[in-house]
Design a protein around this nucleic acid. Structure first.
Lengths: 189, 189
DNA sequence: CGCCGAGTTGAACTGAATCAAGAAACGTGG
DNA sequence: CCACGTTTCTTGATTCAGTTCAACTCGGCG
């Protein structure tokens, strides 16, 4: 649990009291590889901290390869944010790419924290700002770069992605087919 | 100024006291069409409410058509958010597409509000969440739809865009060239 | 050992970019 | 308020990055 407090403190330093009231709401969950943590159409009820593991966001596309929107690693928070924020059905699926240890807080409990503590809203704001920046960066990359440039940047900025995630998901994440990524890799080396 | 309070109240109801302390920090600004409100490389110092007008976000691309990332209309807040949040140089330019009447608050003053008022952080959080959702939706659209589908959806969901914004900016916004958009329009009618 | 999913490679195809040129709309000054 | 010049929009021809379909290889696991 120490990792969680550390992660939160990086947004805004927590008093012991605030931390304890938050910590008391967390529930531990252990899941095996390939577990579906959230299915499209469901309403996301959890915001979770990943003590250990990797989680993938995606949208299944029937016959075709599904669309991957992102990955979340150890020591980060994860949720079907769009659904969690709006409490409307999720468009994304969340899947454990590896076995995961999670600590989850549910929607209602978090709203209580927002009501009761000042720091809750500050952290919520900073976290939402971070998510926004991440998406803005990705938008820029999708509109402004070729597939090869996107791959090279991923290689440089997120080397752990390439190490731990199957190539077909990386391909989908940068917006191309596995075949296209395979060719890119051949051509750049 | 009433419009501003109305807009804020939609996030979280403001007390008279909080509203007045916020309002006292706003400065009115009137600019003509084509004014550059923020240039790439500059640090955004303002969060502004548009009493009247349309503003475009873009990145200039030298020889080629520049890349348009969005538009903000009357009765909304606007800022080079990425730069405003991080206080690092902006990658975007902000330009007035029409004459604009703006009410601006600067970064330092807003941080004061965050420190002093609970509701400030709540509004900040809800606003950041909204920005995130907007970008997530756009990401989905760029990866999951063809240019034609994106145009048709824009037509349906944001008809005022099409009415008031030159076609070449719309084209850029949906991620294609003006020529491609021209052909799409020919083919769907 | 045999199977199955992941990755590679090839060939044909396609949506959109690019280059180019003409038509329409727009605003600015006389 | 009209005329001219400058953008903006349209249309055609060509090119290109990436898709699709298909066949083959490799590595891990039952």
């Amino acid at each position: 649990m120490n990792q969680i407090r550390k992660a939160l403190d990086m947004y805004s330093k927590l008093s012991d009291k605030n931390w304890l009231s938050f910590a008391s709401m967390l529930k531990k969950k252990i899941v095996v590889k390939k577990t579906l943590l959230l299915k499209e159409g469901q309403i996301e009820n959890n915001l979770s901290f990943i003590e250990e593991g990797i989680i993938r966001f995606y949208i299944p596309k029937g016959e075709k390869e599904d669309l991957t929107f992102g990955f979340t690693f150890t020591n980060s928070f994860v949720s079907g944010y769009d659904s969690f924020i709006t409490q409307e059905p999720s468009v994304y699926n969340l899947e454990a790419l590896t076995p995961c240890i999670l600590w989850s807080i549910n929607y209602k409990d978090l709203q209580e924290i927002y009501k009761k503590t000042d720091v809750g809203n500050t952290i919520g704001r900073l976290a939402a700002e971070g998510l926004f920046l991440q998406k803005a960066k990705r938008e820029l990359s999708l509109l402004n770069e070729t597939a090869t440039q996107r791959y090279l940047r991923l290689l440089k900025e997120e080397p752990h992605f390439i190490k731990h995630i199957p190539q077909k998901y990386i391909a989908s994440f940068i917006g191309i087919t596995p075949q296209a990524l395979s060719r890119i890799r051949r051509d750049i080396s």
